[in-house]
Design a protein around this nucleic acid. Sequence first.
DNA 1: TATAATCTGTTGCATTTGCAACATCCTTTT
DNA 2: AAAAGGATGTTGCAAATGCAACAGATTATA
Lengths: 208, 208
Amino acid sequence: MKNNSDISSFISDFSTNCSKVQIKKFNKGETITTFLVNRNQFCVIISGSADLVRYDYNGNRIVTERFSKNSIFGEIFYHINTNSEFVVEAKEKSEVLLFSYDDINEKCKANCPFHEQLKSFFPNLVISKITELTSRIELLSRRTTRDKLLGYFNLLSKQHGKSFTLPFSITELANYLVVDRSSMTRELSILKKDEFIKQERNKITLLY
Amino acid sequence: MKNNSDISSFISDFSTNCSKVQIKKFNKGETITTFLVNRNQFCVIISGSADLVRYDYNGNRIVTERFSKNSIFGEIFYHINTNSEFVVEAKEKSEVLLFSYDDINEKCKANCPFHEQLKSFFPNLVISKITELTSRIELLSRRTTRDKLLGYFNLLSKQHGKSFTLPFSITELANYLVVDRSSMTRELSILKKDEFIKQERNKITLLY
DNA sequence: TATAATCTGTTGCATTTGCAACATCCTTTT
DNA sequence: AAAAGGATGTTGCAAATGCAACAGATTATA
């Protein structure tokens, strides 16, 4: 039985002579792509990780989203907006599958093995993307910084137990939860004082 | 050439003797489904519309999301959380396709016409869902109520021009943007006073 | 190793938002 | 047509958050 949730398992299988697809390697810090025009671009991380970065009017770098193995991203998922600029940057040495999405069922030629394989992986990739986005909306829908933090910690503790390391730095976490960094740190201090959590940098232990 | 973005166009085509699928009709106000346990439920609206509703601790009814023709929803997209209760309610007479999702490629029997058809619609349905969720996150990421409102109005004006009717009531819009209703009305009043918009109930005209 | 740059935590203060209460308007029901 | 229930708009006030500035810790770079 084939595992259809890890795309890296089949990358070596198919010949890369599909005309619509590229597999590229990136070093840390390199730009994987930008969201500027509509090329129906669709990307999947095969190995490594990347950040979706925006630069605000002051030139501050803001990490909006983080992608890791099997994450999908691309212009195709965005309503491109001229007054916002998105850049996807490799966070480490990474391998990325890039292709132009028209219809997953539309093949470049009669028997392209890439398209066959992608068709089998596509459903799981998109469904976990939707689940992820839904969770994020659920978090952003909370009124207070405290509720956002505890909600996010709960999600992580389901995966990793009471003690875990955040996938973000404190600064990045504030961006992810869309709250002011210093206010968030203030709230973390209160949670520590009230013995709800232990925290040091991005290491968290839940005490409840 | 087949249009793969409107699922209602093929509903009459296939025989409904697929063991995994149901097509149900609902009257206004009826409960289509709840998100309580994990049955991998996946739903598509064929006609009509529905609200994703939550009831807070005071029993207040809060519309969190709105689904219309070709919208997908279901437990499968949620990390079910015991302290939150979701109900999907028909907003009008509606037809809904419900099935248990295992793998879109897994057929109930050798040549089930439903699975063949669904496979062809699935990609467009999920991609527009992702785009929608991404836009919502983009809105919720804005710091001020004013920016959320203007951001949302911009999205709508791309589709409908400078004058449009919101798909929500004012109360529902506040829930959608996750702001306090009275604060939002206050902000709308300021936008009107400053002649950025005209507004009466859920009819908006942008003046810029 | 020294220096620079970035990240983290703290605090005071201004602004925004949420909450509550109320009046008015609109819609639905009887 | 009257009454009831719900939605909308307004406002005062309290609470939460953003902003700014700074000090100390950590990491990256020369």
